Simulated assay, not measured.
Amino acid sequence: MNYNIKKANLNDLDETAELFNQYRIFYRQQDEYQKCKEFIKERLDNEQSNIFLVYVEGKTVGFIQLYKLYHYIKLEKQWLLSDLFVFPEYRGKGLSVALIDCAKKWCDETGACGLMLETEKTNEIGNRLYPRCGFEYDSNHNYYYWWK
């Protein structure tokens, strides 16, 4: 399948927001396109994340979003692979792998030590995909959240 990947900017806001909205719906969240658009705009305006879009025949069909973190053991920058989504009709065609490869290349380009991610235990697609892409499962840590 022919595709191309590019780094998103504010000119891509509408399609990026739609992808992000669909991603959230996949995770059982309400359809909130306008809030997603505001959220993505703020991330791009303030350079708080890096988003890469994948296109097939000129149509935006997926994205990956990375946030900068710092690794306390390696004492280096790393990227959090926060969000990865490809429209269902384009899955199984290597686009998620291509987006992950793009994120790995971004690590090289930005001098980061690597990528980390978290996904739901029930995310069968992701839990098969990530090991195929070289990610190692970390069973030694528990992740805790505090929400206000």
Rank of each mutant, 00 (worst) to 15 (best):
D14K: 13
D14Y: 05
E15C: 11
T16W: 00
T16F: 01
A17Y: 03
F20K: 01
F20E: 00
F20P: 00
F20A: 04
N21I: 02
N21W: 01
N21A: 04
Q22K: 13
Q22Y: 04
Q22G: 04
Y23T: 08
Y23R: 04
Y23W: 09
R24W: 01
R24A: 05
R24C: 05
R24K: 15
I25N: 05
F26G: 08
F26D: 06
Y27H: 11
Y27G: 09
Y27E: 09
R28S: 14
R28W: 05
D31V: 01
Y33I: 05
C36D: 03
F39C: 07
K41F: 00
E42M: 15
R43M: 08
R43F: 05
Q48T: 12
Q48H: 12
N50K: 15
F52C: 02
Y55C: 03
Y55H: 13
V56S: 06
E57I: 06
E57D: 15
E57S: 13
K59A: 12
K59Q: 13
T60Q: 03
T60V: 09
V61K: 05
G62D: 02
G62T: 06
I64V: 15
Q65D: 03
Q65N: 08
Y67C: 07
Y67D: 11
Y67E: 14
Y67S: 10
Y67H: 13
K68V: 10
L69N: 12
L69W: 09
H71S: 15
H71W: 14
Y72L: 14
Y72A: 13
I73A: 10
I73W: 06
K74Q: 12
L75I: 14
L75T: 11
K77N: 11
Q78E: 14
Q78I: 10
W79L: 03
W79V: 00
W79Y: 13
W79F: 14
S82W: 00
S82N: 12
D83T: 07
D83H: 07
L84I: 11
F85C: 12
F85I: 09
V86I: 15
F87H: 13
Y90H: 11
Y90I: 05
G92H: 14
K93G: 04
G94K: 02
A98T: 10
A98Q: 12
A98V: 08
D101Y: 00
A103N: 01
K104H: 07
W106F: 15
C107S: 12
C107Q: 06
C107Y: 04
C107I: 09
T110N: 13
G111V: 06
G111H: 02
G111C: 06
C113Q: 07
G114S: 07
L117F: 04
T119E: 10
E120P: 02
E120I: 03
K121Y: 03
K121R: 07
T122Y: 10
N123E: 06
E124F: 12
I125H: 06
I125F: 09
G126C: 07
G126Y: 04
G126T: 08
